[in-house]
Design a protein around this nucleic acid. Structure first.
Length: 554
RNA sequence: GCCCCCGUAGCUCAGUUGGAUAGAGCGCCGGCCUCCGGAGCCGGAGACCGUGGGUUCGAGUCCCACCGGGGGUACCA
């Protein structure tokens, strides 16, 4: 079974320190837990450890000395061909070419299991993402949350967690009221009535479309309603139609949710139970005619309203009930919420609420992704569901394709601000990194197909014939997949995947130029075909983790 | 005002609990098609890492101040 190379080297280093300490050459101080990294420069080896530099002061020896001692105590390993001590005290490791080649067989043997890890130990994790209100179409911002959330879910699953993806439907609360009131106004306006839209109305074009659709299906059925600002049934219809559109948009990008959770379903039972716990724990107070969560008792700056003076619960109160349901009713070990930066202010009080419910707040991980600045030919476009211009996710996906959109959203670290220039995305679509990566996969498929056409069977190819540097470079990159999965699962930063895919593709394209795969030398051809097959497997896995397709031809 | 995020090549972005000469894509300049897919490959130009201090063997990375951009600070979600 292939292993995580970096972890294995770390293990060797720790073992060497242990041995040196037993031999009395290094004082028994605790070594730092993790020191192995991939150096930037190739002449510094494939992996490097700075353990000697970090240990030097504690043990009172020059770093270079410490490095030499550790190097001389390293257990031998078939994986490593050389270890160098470099100033000021690095240990540089080089992977053995024959070991690298042998791993190609291991990758092929593992097949789709390659890159799957057991670090999750079957823990139940929920990833909740997008969860945009069903009051308007999904925007590009939702696309970023979608790409990150779906990718993390896939990676966590590969890392050995039991993962569920969820969309939270905000079908209760004041925004849905405003939505319904706006919809009703539009509907009446279609019949020629002279009415105004409510304050804070949703003024997007789609509200007219929705109203028109309803007019055609229900005729004048809702006219003349007077028991409230809008007919409840009209709200139902509107939300359900909006939700259908959202689901269609999501389908366009290939996301599959395991569950759709309705805010309304929290009422009344779940909501009551969650509030009861807060009350029992003494975190609820009444003042100024409203009911408050006393988050100041948990170190927050201020308290937050749970139930408004008009008797209606706030979004925050709903969200507490929702998280109560996640942890207590459904029993997730860990919950990951992916929110846009416009929800940032909600994070501390949500954490406080979770701990007030008696849950270790560490079990709730909230990933905030910064907002997407939309541009058109360099000019900024403001995005607001309530204001006029909205660039929808659908619009973007239809223009650049789901794969490209995902790759693009994933390539930026969640906490960075991101520019999305529609013109640029369109213009670059022919010379895009997305195509570069997918082309590599198609090329691999093409070679394997070509070999099949020639009747070349590589099942028993001998990988030990592979010695070229370009071949080794491909092998080295292949073996990093588990490392990448581990990293993303641990840090929850999916953007390293696109970069890895790019490096993988580059290594392969370079290999392709330098090493003819199918040649007169049948034995060498078979060996190289195995390398190509392994590379194809790994690149496909990588694309799959990003939620992208791995085309056999383009 | 206070809190959070960002500022790295012309543009968009990487840079792994502080590591060795700061990287990639696009764009630009110059090369490579007898041969498995040229949506490719090779080479080149292009960065005083926003500014100024500090911490130490070592700072793009940590601390402080400032400048610029974004977000939050609701009985909105």
């Amino acid at each position: 079974m292939p292993l995580v190379v970096r972890d294995e080297i770390e293990r060797l280093v720790q073992e060497a320190v242990h041995r040196a300490q037993e031999g009395g050459l290094i004082p028994p101080v605790a070594p730092p837990p993790s020191t192995v990294e991939r150096p930037q420069r190739p002449d510094h080896g494939d992996y490097a450890s700075n353990i000697a530099l970090r240990l030097a002061r504690a043990v009172g020896l020059p770093p270079h000395e410490v490095a030499k001692i550790i190097a001389s105590h390293l257990p031998s390993s078939p994986m490593i061909s050389s270890v160098e001590v470099a100033s000021p005290g690095f240990l540089n490791f080089r992977l053995s070419p024959s070991w690298l080649a042998s791993q190609i067989d291991e990758v092929l043997k593992a097949g789709e299991r390659f890159g799957q890890l057991g670090i999750g130990q079957g823990q139940k994790v929920q990833v909740e993402f997008v969860s945009a209100n069903p009051t308007g179409p999904l925007t590009v911002g939702a696309g970023r949350g979608l790409a990150i959330g779906d990718c993390l879910a896939r990676v966590l699953q590969a890392a050995g967690y039991e993962v569920e993806k969820e969309y939270y439907i905000n079908d209760a609360g004041t925004q849905t009221d405003t939505f319904a009131a706006t919809l009703y106004a539009r509907y009446r306006q279609l019949f020629g009535e002279n009415v105004d839209v409510p304050p804070g109305a949703y003024t997007g074009e789609y509200m007219w479309d929705l109203a028109e659709e309803i007019r055609q299906e229900w005729k004048d059925r809702f006219l003349g309603f007077s028991e409230g600002p809008y007919p409840p049934q009209l709200q139902e219809i509107g939300i359900s139609k909006m939700l259908q559109r959202i689901k269609a948009d999501l389908a366009l990008t290939g996301v599959h949710y395991d569950s759709w959770f309705s805010e309304r379903s929290l009422y009344p039972d779940t909501f009551e139970r969650a509030m009861a716990i807060l009350k029992e724990e003494g975190y609820v107070a009444q003042k100024e005619g409203a009911i408050w969560f006393v988050s100041s008792a948990l170190g927050e700056d201020k308290d937050n309203v749970l139930i408004r003076s008009n008797g209606r619960p706030t979004y925050f109160a709903s969200d507490i009930a929702y998280h109560y349901h996640k942890f207590f009713v459904r029993g997730y070990d860990k919950v990951i919420d992916i929110w846009g930066a416009d929800h940032k202010g909600h994070v501390p009080r949500m954490k406080a609420a979770v701990s007030a419910l008696g849950i270790d707040p560490e079990r709730l991980v909230i990933i905030i992704h910064q907002l997407v600045t939309l541009k058109r030919g360099g000019e900024e476009v403001r995005v607001s569901k309530r204001a006029g211009e909205v660039i929808t996710l659908r619009e973007v996906v239809e223009e650049v394709g789901a794969d490209a959109a995902r790759f693009f959203f994933l390539s930026r670290a969640p906490h960075t601000h991101m520019d999305f220039d529609l013109e640029l995305a369109k213009r670059q679509s022919a010379e895009n990194p997305v195509y570069y990566v997918q082309y590599a996969h198609a090329r691999m498929a093409g070679i394997l197909m070509h070999a099949r056409g020639r009747g070349l069977d590589y099942a028993d190819g001998d990988v030990s014939l592979l010695k070229e540097e370009a071949e080794m470079a491909v092998a080295r990159h292949l073996l990093r997949l588990p490392e990448v999965v581990e990293y993303v699962a641990r840090k929850l930063e999916p953007h390293v995947l696109p970069y890895y895919a790019l490096e993988m593709a580059t290594a392969f394209h370079d290999f392709y130029e330098r090493c003819r795969v199918v040649s007169e030398d049948v034995q060498l051809s078979r060996a190289r075909l195995r390398l190509v097959a392994a590379a194809k497997l790994v690149l496909a896995q990588c694309l799959h983790l990003m939620g992208m397709s791995a085309p056999e031809r383009m």
